[in-house]
Simulated assay, not measured.
Amino acid sequence: MTGPARSFRATSFAELDSSFTDAHLAIGNFDGMHRGHQAVLDRVRAAAEADGRPALVLTFEPHPRDVFRPDQPVFRLTSPFAKARIAEALGLDGLVTIAFDRVFASTPADAFVRRVVVDGARARSVAVGWNFHFGAGRSGSPTLLAESGLKNGFGVTVVEPFQDEGGKVISSSRIREELEAGRIADAAGLLGYRWFFEAEVVHGDKRGRTIGYPTANVRLPATAKFAHGIYAVMIEIDGVARPGVASFGRRPTFDNGAAVFETHVFDFAGDLYGKTVVVTPVSYLRPEMRFDSVAALVAQMDQDSAEARAALSALTPLTPLDRVLLTERMTG
């Protein structure tokens, strides 16, 4: 497509200019934008390329479970920012994120199709996953959507469950389990790229600088339940990904307080406070530990740093998508 810049983020179709209408549309929650989701997005991109129209992604915030079961909030894999970045890397033209609340959830299925798909997106075609449901009481199904497409003049593609090399269906819940267990490589295999998150650097206790390891500290939502421990990471600062070693946890040697993600950026000096950084955990090195002395902690940090440097020196893209998301942003 020519015209507007890709990865245009909007909260409604009304925000988009006319060049984004008559689009091919992928609809779903797409938390993770994993290989199964990418199978849906690939169908939309191919349809859009075939007739020169935009390829758009429609998703929802917050996650429906956060609305209906706020006492059991979900560990979110991808924020709207992350979804837009991945959509751009996949060659789609934009991401529309509609606010999801109980009022929106009560919309009848036929009204959802009319307001969102027909009047909002003016979609030429729609692609969804096999388990996509919509409308009040989840009454809308892929079958109902296909029937509505016949009536309203848009095509519907339903993508079957996507299996990994072992024959197991790829799902967001599987990926969460891998991250919670520290199995970073396994999660990346299911995602088709290395998982990442963005956060603002905040002031900490500044203890790291007194022991030779200044860190960029970020606080993550309590729902971010990936494994506590030490990681080799890439941290993107002002558009450039730099190597580092990070600790995620409660600092048992010092205060055993609230969990913080602390990254020591190798060979870097600069004020990062207030900046939004993008962190990609590349390798899980070890669990969080308590040390009897600061000297023992520093000795272990020296070893962790050496292991992180070795792991990152051998970093290669897992997939073409991973190359765009991470390695093309790496500093020389």
Rank of each mutant, 00 (worst) to 15 (best):
P70A: 07
P70T: 07
Q72V: 09
L77R: 03
S79P: 04
S79M: 10
S79E: 11
F81H: 14
A84P: 08
A84Q: 10
R85K: 12
I86E: 10
E88F: 01
A89H: 01
A89K: 02
L90K: 12
G91I: 13
G94T: 03
L95I: 07
V96G: 08
T97W: 02
F100S: 10
D101N: 15
V103P: 10
V103E: 15
F104S: 08
A105C: 05
S106F: 07
T107K: 05
T107P: 05
T107A: 11
P108V: 14
V113R: 12
R114F: 15
R114K: 13
V117T: 11
D119G: 03
G120Y: 01
G120S: 03
R124T: 14
S125R: 05
V126Q: 03
V128N: 00
G129T: 01
F132D: 05
H133T: 09
G135C: 06
G135I: 08
A136T: 11
G137Y: 02
R138W: 00
S141Y: 00
T143V: 07
T143P: 00
L145T: 11
L145C: 10
E147R: 04
E147M: 03
E147C: 01
S148K: 15
G149W: 06
L150D: 12
K151Q: 09
N152G: 03
N152D: 11
F154R: 04
G155A: 12
T157H: 02
T157G: 01
V158I: 02
E160R: 09
P161A: 00
F162C: 14
F162Q: 15
G166Y: 11
